[in-house]
Design a binder for these strands. Structure first.
Lengths: 206, 206
DNA sequence: CCTCTAATGTGAGCGATGTACACATATTAC
DNA sequence: GTAATATGTGTACATCGCTCACATTAGAGG
């Protein structure tokens, strides 16, 4: 069922599938992303996408890959060279904003178990990891980078999911931003009642 | 297709479906949880479960509800009356352990968008929320409970997901526990380079 | 320019799923 | 004991992922 004055062959079905998948994701959520729907939207038979993607998972992973690259760009744009807690909070806000604005994409990126065989996924995760470590080393020069990076990523990631799941108010982007900034500052300013942190270093677990 | 010397009616199909769903979840992950598979395992026709659950989502929500109650019990068991940062870290470790030991269940509980119409889900979320606030008020008496509770829950929740997704080492339960404890302590001990936190209070975002 | 091969798209078809519907059977209330 | 109600069965349909045999085309080698 060709549509234009055009051809049996599509030209760039691979890219067209990706685009269609992204659109379906935004319109109908993750469950609406079926290979057949993608094919329909690309104006192509149901099985044509299999020439470019081994199976549904492969398409989804490709979409996730795009998402990772976009996320990286979005964060870098939020602050090119973070050095202070405020800068970190700004990037955290951007991370959560990204998730809230593209909920289905974000879920695709992070919700499914990360297939260790998928090179793109593994590499993307590693890139985020490096990025976070870099920031943490700048902002917390005296801390153990690995441990604190884990914690920082977890904090931000958790904030994203709680907002995503409607467990937290997310009326306006500004509200979200303010909540995230407040949460980040609250954690690093908190002083526990019975186990006061030592200043200037990481305290080991007992 | 009755199986025993028994009856057309099952007796307690509702509970049997729940049990079957839990088993399938552990055995085959979230994608293996189909209504038809549940029906098969319960030894009943494909459409019988519809007498007890409006649709697949309803069954899944019921499973999630069980999960919430179990999680609450598990955390309470980890520490009945948390008062210090160490206690908090212990509960955090329990939270992550719960997630890692029942990955599919945990995903069911938290991954899908929280349907605001589902009373059980909303109530369960609220309960967790209250629980976290209670702990935070004990451990950080000087902080703003709402903001810091958000942050603490996000931190722990994020740690759970990062471990779940294989983004962090999770060789043994002990390893996980130690990582979580270290992360919690690291956050609350961290001292930023350029924005030193004020002691004894929450610092507002600028 | 022509041909032949490899790349790409088509169509029918299989097994599985969620769910609606009409029907069968057992439990319970009177 | 009978009628109403709750519960389970069977059939059916649309959709889905995926396989396979076949059709069409683009592009390389002559």
């Amino acid at each position: 069922m060709p549509q234009e004055g055009s051809s049996y062959h599509h030209g760039d079905l691979r890219a067209a599938c990706l685009r269609a998948a992204r659109e379906l994701l935004e319109e109908s959520g993750g469950s609406g992303l079926s290979l057949r729907a993608v094919a329909r939207r690309a104006g192509v038979s149901a099985t044509a996408p299999y020439r470019h993607y081994a199976d549904r998972d492969a398409l989804v992973s490709a979409v996730a890959g795009e998402g990772y690259r976009e996320l990286a760009g979005y964060l870098a744009e939020a602050h090119p060279d973070p050095k202070t807690l405020d800068d970190l909070a700004e990037i955290a806000a951007a991370y959560v904003r990204f998730a809230v604005q593209r909920p289905a994409l974000f879920r695709v990126m992070f919700v499914e178990p990360c297939d260790p065989d998928n090179e793109e996924r593994v590499q993307a995760t590693a890139a985020i990891w490096e990025y976070v470590i870099g920031i943490v080393e700048e902002v917390f020069p005296d801390a153990d980078p690995d441990t604190l990076s884990t914690a920082v990523w977890a904090l931000v990631h958790g904030l994203a999911f709680l907002h995503l799941d409607g467990k937290l108010d997310a009326d306006t982007p500004e509200t979200v931003d303010n909540h995230v900034r407040a949460a980040v500052h609250a954690v690093f300013a908190a002083d526990s009642a019975h186990s006061p942190p030592e200043r200037g270093g990481v305290r080991a677990a007992p």
